[in-house]
Every structure is written in structure tokens, then in C-alpha cells.
Design a protein around this nucleic acid. Structure first.
Lengths: 214, 214
DNA sequence: ACCTGAACACCGTTCAAGT
DNA sequence: ACCTGAACACCGTTCAAGT
């Protein structure tokens, strides 16, 4: 077969297969040959739809970012602390569903439309709420730090379940660390919520000081 | 030449060359062949010192983690908020000096001794300071989220310097975003400090409540 | 326009051969 | 013990050839 009457591939199908491969086997498993095989075509076929493998990755990343809810930044949304809370939860949920792609996505928006829309919505909402532009930029940055960091990898799963690793002579306080991996999601969920609320409290404190002496 | 009288390679030299390569050209530039060439040996020579490329990467990561100052968690260190502040700054500085390796390092301590020592020191200090063990775990996790997220990539550099990217119709609030990349370090530094202080304020609030009703 | 196989310069790793 | 070249099964990408 050379050219089929209806195309075998399109960008959407390629992106979906790439994301599935990354989710199930990691970023390193995404090769153009492997991806093509999943789609039952030969490797070079992909180059009819994307110029490079990096462009495929870019499209995957923007698809994931597109899942983040931004509706709380609309005109009749909640006050900024609640909007930030709702957004951070949705942001983390979208990223944590695809942890293997977070290192790519954390490089910043680049020219990806969904990522730029997200940055625009957060910054705009904070400025409209009364934050000075410089502060609004910093809040956008520090929220991304926290959310990407929390989605990049599970804290709990980073500790081997093998109790033999934690020699009491070397690590006197890690005697229970081998049980962390078992608690998995709950530890990370709790840490994210604690950190988010602490951040919001700290920011609210700064906002009060800002309004008190403008 | 087959076996030289004094070995051409050792683990230290390999790790140093690997880190230099990663810093200067990114994680993708680290191939065993390329690394071997930097050390003026043939590719397979590396396998006399490490079993796999992943083991080399592990050693690189633990070297970087080893640069983090943990002295503030000693017996006569400062109270926990100041210790956490000093540690977070040193942690970020060590990681931000090698951003390309952060995605690897963020996977958790695994069996790497310096990473386990770090986790042990933070957790032990918080528990000794009076935090319940569950809370201390969460604080260790959320601090890692924030620090790795802030070291993974520059927020400012993620926005293209090309003003043409930010079409006012699509992104009404990003009119000045093209200037971010120029401000580079200062934006990220400010965001990190703001986030760190906000987090510490929020945690202090929680600690007060904890002590008030034990 | 959209697919193919062949080809190029790369990978990580194994292994027999050298000293 | 520690290095080498050859070899294997992989990579991303280009390109001429097919319909």
C-alpha cells in the first residue's frame, strides 16, 4: 500500500497513541518506530503529520494542559484565594494523571496555545483582584513550582518498600519509611493539600498587608 | 592498548564528566559513547566501572544531592522554621545549578545514600521539634514538591522573548510576557522566596494551632 | 497527499580478545 | 583487572519510489 484512499493517520490519533505510550511505559518508551508500530504504520509515516518527534511531544503536552479547568477565572468566579485553590487542584489532577510528561511540560508554555491561555488566565485574574503585576507574576510562578513538583513524582513511592534499605545506624529516623510506598496516594494527596492551604494562608497574609498600606 | 598500568578511568572521573555533559548539553546528550569520547576511551570501557548507564545517572544524582547543606538540622541548629528556610535555600541552589538532572532526582531517594540522609535529617528534625510524624512526612514531601518544581525549569525563560507570540486577541494579559525571559533569574528568585516565606508562614500557623490544643 | 523500504548516523550493551 | 573492536538490536530522520 502506498497512499490509502482515506488516510491511515491524523494528528489526533498520533497524539493519543503517544500519550498512552508515555503513560504506560514512560517517556523513554516513546520512539517514532515504536509509536508507528502501535498505529500499524511504518516509522517515517509520522513525518507526514509532524515535522519532528519534538513536535509530537509538544502536541501531547498541550493536550494535557488543555484538561486544566480555567473557568474559576471567569468574570463571576470566586475571590482569588478560592479561584487559586480550585485551579491548583484541577492543574495537579491533570498533571498527576500523566506524571511521565511533567518534565517536558514544566519547561514552560513556549508557543503552546493551551499553556499560554493558562498563564494568561491566572495572571489576569490576580491583577484584576488587586495584586500588583510583579507580585502576580511571582504567584503564577510559585504555584507552577508547587503543582509541577507535586505531579512530577510520588513522594511516597520514592522510598523503597524493602525495609533492609533503612539501616538504623545510617538513617535513625527512617525506620518506618518502607511503609510509605504502601500508603502511596494518601501521603501525596495529604502533602499537596497541606502545602496548598499553607501557601494560600501565606499569600492571604501578604494581600492583607498590601491592602492595609497601599 | 589493552590494560594500562594505571587505570584510565574511575567512577569519580566518569561521574564528573557525565554531570558536565548533562549541564552543558542536556540529559539527552548523555550517551555512553559520547561520555566515553569525552574521557578519551571507547564506549564499552565504562562497563568496567558501572553496570549500566542508569547506574552512572544514579551516581550523578547522588553527587548533586550531596551538595545540599544539612548542618542546620544538627543538635544546636536554629528552630524548625529557620532550619527549614536555610535548608530549602541550599536545596534549591544545589538543584538549580543542575536543572537538567532534576527530573531524575525528583523520582525520590531510591537507595541513594545522600538522598536518604537528606530525608532522614528533615524528618528527624521536624519530629524532634514537636511535629507529629504524619505531619512531618507531609512537610518533607511538600517542601520537596516546591523545591524540585522551582529548580526544574526557569519560569521566566519558559516564555518566548518574541513579542509576536502574544496576540492580544488570544492572550489579553500577556502583553509584557516577552520581557520575562530578559529578567530571567530575578523573577524566579523572587517567586521562590515569596513562595518559601508564604509556606513557612502557613506552616507556622498550623504549628501554633497544634501547640494550643495538643 | 500519504504511505513504503532503504539508508545514514546514531544509541545501550554484550562478548571475545588482548595485556 | 581494564581496555579494545566487532556485533546486535535498537534509535530519529531523509529520501526516492509508489499510488
Amino acid at each position: 500500500m502506498a497512499r490509502p484512499r482515506t488516510p491511515l493517520l491524523n494528528r489526533e490519533r498520533i497524539v493519543a497513541a503517544a500519550l498512552r505510550l508515555i503513560d504506560e511505559e514512560g517517556l523513554a518508551a516513546l520512539s517514532t518506530r515504536r509509536l508507528a508500530a502501535e498505529l500499524s504504520v511504518s516509522g517515517p509515516s509520522l513525518y507526514n503529520h509532524f515535522a519532528t518527534k519534538d513536535e509530537i511531544l509538544d502536541a501531547v503536552v498541550d493536550t494535557v494542559i488543555g484538561e486544566v479547568d480555567l473557568s474559576m477565572f471567569g468574570a463571576d468566579g470566586p475571590p482569588w484565594p478560592q479561584a487559586l485553590r480550585d485551579w491548583a487542584r484541577s492543574y495537579r489532577a491533570a498533571l498527576a494523571a500523566h506524571p511521565n510528561i511533567v518534565p517536558v511540560l514544566a519547561q514552560g508554555p513556549g508557543r503552546r496555545p493551551n499553556a499560554l491561555r493558562l498563564a494568561d488566565a491566572v495572571f489576569g485574574h490576580l491583577v484584576d483582584a488587586g495584586w500588583p503585576r510583579g507580585q502576580a507574576t511571582r504567584i503564577g510562578a510559585l504555584m507552577r513550582y508547587f503543582v509541577t513538583g507535586s505531579a512530577l513524582a510520588s513522594f511516597a513511592a520514592g522510598f523503597p518498600a524493602d525495609a533492609g534499605v533503612y539501616d538504623a545506624a545510617d538513617y535513625p529516623h527512617l525506620g518506618e519509611a518502607h511503609r510509605l510506598a504502601g500508603h502511596g496516594g494518601r501521603v501525596d494527596e495529604g502533602a499537596f493539600e497541606t502545602g496548598l492551604e499553607a501557601l494560600l494562608d501565606g499569600l492571604a497574609l501578604r494581600f492583607e498587608r498590601l491592602v492595609a498600606r497601599p
